[in-house]
Amino acid sequence: MNEITLHKGKDKAAWQLHPWIFSGAIKRVNGSPENGAVVSVFNAESEFIAYGVYNANSRVAVRLLEWNPDIAIDELWWRDRLRRAVHLRKHLLTEENDTVRLVFAEADFLPGLIVDKYADYLSIQVHSSGLEKVKSVIVDELVGLVAPMGIYERSDLKSREHEGLADANGLLYGELPPEFVRVVENGIQYQINIVEGQKSGFYCDQRENRWLTAQYSRDKRVLDCFCYSGGFTLNAIRHGASAVVSVDSSALAVETLRKNIETNGFDASNHTAIQSDVNKYLRQLGEEGQRFDVIILDPPKYAPSRSTLEKASRAYKDLNRRGLMLLESGGLLATFSCSGAMDIDTFKQVIAWAALDAGKEIQFIRQFTQPEDHPIRASFPEGEYLKGLLVRVV
C-alpha cells in the first residue's frame, strides 16, 4: 500500500472526518502511487488516519474515503457506498417527482461523483481520478440498482483539468437519451435535454424552492431571470400568476421553456419568453418604468472560488440592485447564489448593500437552501453551496 505522511499539525481536519488533504499538508509520499490510486494516510507520528485516493496533479492531493483501517477500499466498498446513497433517496421518487440526485459526491463518501436521475435515464459527472478508475464498477452497480434505459456521461468540467483528466462525454450504458426526455417535478412535466443542456440538463436542486416561491405568485406579475428550462416560471403559472416574463441568454433554454409550457397545456397568453442578457434586460425594464410583484434571480455561479468572491459580490450586488428597483412596496425578490464561496451571511450583506443603492428598505422573510438529495455532510460544510433569500420591499 502506498503511504502518505502529513506534516506535523496538518492532521486536525482529517481526524475530524474532513475528506480533503491539500498538497501543502503532505510531508512525504512513500511508494509511487499513480493518480487515482488508493493510499493510506498517516500523521507525523505515524498514526493511521484514513484511506483515500491520491492525485499528484490536484491541489486536493488526497480525497479521504474510509477512516476504519480494517475496511478495505475494494470493489465491494464502492458498490456498498453507492447502494447506500441510492437507498437514501428512494422515498423521493414518486408520481409527482421522477427526477432526483442519487449521488452527491463528498456528501455520500464518493468524492468526485454526481449522479442525477431523469425519469428513465441517468446523467453522471466524474470529477476525480479516483472515481475515473472505478467508473465501470459505478456504472455496473447503477444498472443493477436503478435499471435505467440509459446512462449518459457529462464530464466536461474544469475540475477534471485540475485532476489531469480530459473531458469525457458520451453514452456509458443502454440507449442514447432522446433529444428531449420528459420528467416530472412537483407534478409539472418538463422536456429536458440531457445531452446538450447545461451540465446534466436540469437543476433539481431548486425543486423545493421553485414550489415555495410559487406560493407567493397567485394573481401576481412575475419576472423569472436566468429561467433556463422554466422551473420557476412553470411553478408560478401553475399556481395562478397573472403574468410571467421569463428571461435567459440561451436560445436552447427559451426553446425548451416554450416546449415545457406546451407540454403541460398551460395557457401561454400571459407568458412572455425573452432571449437576452439578463443585466441588459433589467436595465431596459428600468428605463421603461416597468414594475413587477415577484422577481426571481437565479444566476449561474459567480464565485467559483474564494479568490473570486470580491468580484462576484459586486456582480451579485449590481444584479440585485437592478431587480429591487423594479419592485414597489410589498414586492418580493427571490434571489439565489449557487456559489459555494458565498456564505449566507455574506449574501445577506450583499443584498443589503444592493437595497441601499436601490433606495429600498427591505426585510428578509425566508431563507432557501438545497433539498435533501443534496445533503450537507457535517464534516464537509463546503457541500453547502445553494442559498437563497426571499426579500420583501417595505
Results as ranks from 00 to 15, higher is better:
Leu332Gln: 09
His162Ile: 02
Val247Thr: 10
Lys158Ala: 15
Thr213Arg: 06
Gly265Pro: 11
Asp108Thr: 07
Lys199Gln: 02
Gly170Trp: 14
Gly331Ile: 06
Ser229Tyr: 12
Ser23Gly: 06
Asp357His: 08
Gly289Cys: 09
Ser249Ile: 05
Val143Tyr: 10
Ser40Arg: 14
Phe364Gln: 02
Leu252His: 03
Gly265Trp: 11
Ile151Asp: 05
Thr369Gly: 12
Pro381Gln: 11
Asn35Pro: 10
Phe347Ile: 03
Leu332Arg: 14
Ser129Ile: 00
Ser217Tyr: 03
Leu297Ile: 14
Arg28Phe: 01
Val254Thr: 08
Ile365Tyr: 06
Pro375Lys: 08
Asn169Gly: 04
Ile188Gly: 00
Ala119Gln: 03
Asn30Asp: 12
Leu131Pro: 10
Trp78Asp: 04
Pro178Phe: 07
Leu6Ala: 04
Val278Cys: 11
Glu382Tyr: 05
Val181Phe: 09
Ala253His: 01
Ala107Trp: 10
Met149His: 06
Ala273Arg: 06
Gly231Cys: 10
Gly164Ile: 02
Glu75Trp: 01
His374Ile: 06
Glu384Met: 09
Glu328Asn: 13
Asn97Gln: 13
Glu175His: 13
Pro69Ser: 14
Thr346Ala: 12
Lys27Cys: 00
Glu185Met: 13
Gly383Lys: 07
Trp77Arg: 01
Arg218Trp: 01
Gly164Thr: 01
Val146Ile: 15
Arg63Asp: 11
Ile73Cys: 12
Leu165Arg: 04
Cys204Ile: 15
Gly331Leu: 07
Val39Arg: 05
Val393Tyr: 09
Glu161Trp: 00
Gly130Thr: 03
Asn2Asp: 14
Ala341Asp: 03
Gly388Ser: 12
Ile114Lys: 01
Asp318Ser: 03
Ile344Glu: 15
Ala214Gln: 07
Ser123Leu: 02
Ser46Leu: 10
Asn43Thr: 09
Glu161Asp: 11
Ala273Asn: 07
Ser136Tyr: 03
Arg377Asp: 13
Asn235Asp: 08
Pro300Val: 06
Leu110Pro: 13
Asp277Gly: 15
Glu384Arg: 15
Val222Asn: 07
Glu132Ala: 12
Phe48Asp: 09
Glu328Gly: 14
Phe202Asn: 01
Lys220Trp: 00
Glu196Gln: 14
Trp67Glu: 05
Val195Tyr: 08
Leu324Ser: 05
Leu92Glu: 07
Phe42Asn: 05
Leu252Arg: 11
Glu141Trp: 13
Ala312Thr: 02
Tyr216Asn: 15
Val29Lys: 10
Lys90Ala: 11
Gly112Val: 10
Ala268Gly: 09
Glu132His: 04
Cys204Glu: 07
Asn235Thr: 00
Pro19Asn: 02
Leu285Ala: 15
Val137Thr: 15
Asp343Phe: 05
Thr308Cys: 00
Leu309Ser: 02
Pro148Leu: 08
Val244Met: 01
His18Thr: 01
Glu372Asp: 13
Ser339Thr: 04
Lys117Trp: 10
Val143His: 07
Ala334Glu: 04
Ser58Thr: 05
Tyr302Arg: 13
Phe266His: 09
Asp298Leu: 06
Glu288Gly: 02
Ser46Lys: 15
Trp78Gly: 02
Val254His: 01
Arg84Ser: 12
Asn97Gly: 04
Thr233Asn: 06
Val391Asn: 11
Leu171Thr: 11
Ala147Val: 01
His271Phe: 14
